[in-house]
Amino acid sequence: METKTIQISAGKGPVECEYVVAKVLRIFLLELINNKIDYTILNRETGIANGTIQSVSIQLKGNQLTEFLQHWLGTIQWIGTSTFRKFHKRKNWFIGCFEVKGLKSIEIKGNEIQFQAIRSSGAGGQHVNKVSSAIRAKHIQTGLQVLVMDSRSQHQNKKIAIKRLQEKVASFNLDQANEQLKNQWENHQKLERGNPVRVFTGSDFKQIKKSKSFKSKRNQLKDDLRKQLE
C-alpha cells in the first residue's frame, strides 16, 4: 500500500481559481472513493469568497496510487464564465495539483514503547489498589504517553494502551504535516498553464476528454506525403 500527499492549489490565481479548486476537490474525492483509496484532509485554506478554497492538502493511502495520480498531477483547466465578475471576458482558469514530498511520518514499533505497571486508583472494588493492573505506555521517540486503567487485567490494559498510543502518534503526525504544509509555498508559486492534464467546462464541470486519434494523424501524414510527391 502506498502513501502520498498531494496539494490542489489556486496558486496566485484570482477568486475564480479558488472557486475551481473547491469544485475540483469534490470530483477528486469522489474518484478516491470509487477507487477505494483512503484519504485524510491535512490542511485546507479557504478562499476570499464563500465556498472557495485557496489550497487543500490531502494524504492518500491505497494501492496503485502512482497510476491513479497520473491522471491528476499537473495543471487543471476550467473553461467557464466567472460568477464573481459578471462582465469579465476571461473564460480559461487554471489551478494545479502537485505531489508534496518530504513530509515525515512516524510509525510505532514494538521496541519503541516503554511500559510501566502501576497500581490503579479510584472506584473498582476493594482489590483495586492491591494489584498493579494499570499500564502507563510511553512512545520513546515522541515522548507521548497514555495511562490506562480500564480493566483489572494488566494484559488487556496493555492492549488498550498500545491502541491509544497509536492514535496519539497518528494525531501527532497530522499536526506535524499541517505545520510543514503551512510553511510550504513553492506549489503556490509554480503553476504552468500549458498542456493541462484535465479540462472541465461549464457550471456542471463536465470533463472534456482529450481525443487521441492516431488514424487522423496517419491520414494527415499521408496527405502531406502526397503533396510532396505531386
Rank of each mutant, 00 (worst) to 15 (best):
K12S: 11
Q156A: 12
Q77P: 07
E18Y: 06
G125R: 14
I162T: 05
K210H: 11
T5F: 07
L42K: 02
T83K: 15
K227R: 11
K206F: 06
I135Q: 01
K61R: 13
L32T: 00
N92R: 15
D224R: 15
T66P: 05
R44H: 09
A117D: 08
T3A: 04
Q59H: 12
I58K: 01
V24E: 01
L60T: 00
K206M: 07
E45T: 08
Y19S: 01
T52W: 09
E107C: 03
C97P: 03
L30N: 11
T46P: 08
E16W: 10
K190N: 14
S105L: 13
V128G: 02
Q220V: 05
A177Q: 15
I53H: 03
E45H: 12
K222V: 10
Q59Y: 04
Q126P: 05
H188T: 07
H71M: 05
I58F: 03
V20T: 03
T201K: 14
K206D: 06
N157D: 01
I41C: 02
N219P: 04
S82G: 03
L181P: 02
I118N: 07
L174I: 15
G194T: 14
C17A: 08
V100A: 00
K206S: 07
V15R: 04
S55F: 09
W93M: 01
Q70A: 05
G194D: 14
I108M: 01
L29Q: 03
S105H: 09
K36S: 13
G13I: 06
S213I: 10
Q220F: 08
D150Q: 14
S82A: 04
G47R: 04
I76K: 00
E112P: 07
G47N: 02
